[in-house]
Amino acid sequence: MNDFIIILLGTTILYIFPASRLEAYVKTLAVQGILLFFLVIIDIKEINWLNILFLSFETLILKGIIIPYFLLSVIRKNEINREIDPYISQFYSILIGSIIFIFGFLAAFWSARLDAEIKPLYFGISIVMIISSLFLIINRKRIITHILCYMILENGIFLLSLSVANEMPMLVNLGVLLDLFVGIFLFAIFFNKIQQMYDGNKIDILTELKD
């Protein structure tokens, strides 16, 4: 069952590579949040209610609902629909995406050989998510897409921490969550300001400061 969910998570990444409508990105984020929620629920072995409550809040409520909804409202308010032509065309993006997937599977094999307790498929897909999000950030021009891809990066890191199954202290988890939440909030504030001040939202406009 959880292998199936992991494969779905991988598919969301493949879906996002050629996507150009921004709402598609947001929906993908919501789907990823919900998939991560199911993953957490299936995986839980011992019943620690506090932990379950916390993790479901983090995945379902925050990653699945609040943050996507918030970003969607930002997108609608600013009336942006599409990503503009990326630096590398759609076709080559998919090609690069496939190469990242190959690398991810190789990483899964290596990790299984190096450490018995790692869940290889989790590990591989999380590496794919992290590298893909970095690639997407480099390739896309709109600032809002950068924020969306940052969320994908965070989801990838969350999956990576699930693959290791070493628990962090609760205080740390809380802190990480708070940072993520405030970070997204600040990103949106700055995005709105850039939109107002520069009358545009491409990365190319931020070139005033240089030597």
Binding site: Y150, M197, L209
Partner: peptide, 16 residues
């Protein structure tokens, strides 16, 4: 304008 650019670069690069 310039401080907005600086702040955006700062928060985004450092967050990544």
């Amino acid at each position: 304008k310039s401080s907005l650019e600086a702040a955006w670069k700062y928060i985004y690069i450092c967050s990544i």
